[in-house]
């Protein structure tokens, strides 16, 4: 049932060229080089330290590793991370 619903949403957004992050309620991750990362539509922080940041989202946990990680801003929809980013992992 759930899967069918998702598929429907996907087809609609494909057909109408609507942004999928809005239609399917997915996180949007934007990276600027390896120095800044921007996650919108997150579901809260699970862990934050200077080396790792774990953010909850609809597709699972987004794990960002790096050094000197700083949270530039936190809003209910958006997180901006500054620092040197080494890796992004999605654990679903």
């Amino acid at each position: 049932m759930d899967n069918r619903m998702e598929n429907l949403k996907y087809s609609i957004s494909e057909a109408l060229e609507l942004p999928k992050d809005i239609v399917m309620d997915l996180p949007k991750i934007i990276m600027v080089g390896n120095i800044q990362l921007n996650i919108s539509n997150h579901k809260g922080i699970i862990e934050y330290s200077q080396d790792t940041l774990r953010v909850n989202s609809n597709i699972g946990i987004i794990k960002i590793t790096g050094s000197n990680l700083k949270l530039k801003t936190i809003l209910s929809e958006e997180i901006v991370v500054d620092g040197t980013i080494d890796g992004i992992e999605i654990i679903s």
């Binding site: 809260g44 922080i45 699970i46 862990e47 934050y48 330290s49 200077q50 990680l69 700083k70 949270l71 530039k72 801003t73 936190i74 809003l75 209910s76």
Partner: peptide, 23 residues
Amino acid sequence: LERFLNLAATNDIYLWDINRVDY
């Protein structure tokens, strides 16, 4: 501290330049 950050975000309290100095 993560819970604190999440609560601040959901309550629309604007915080910036957050840095984890220590554990």
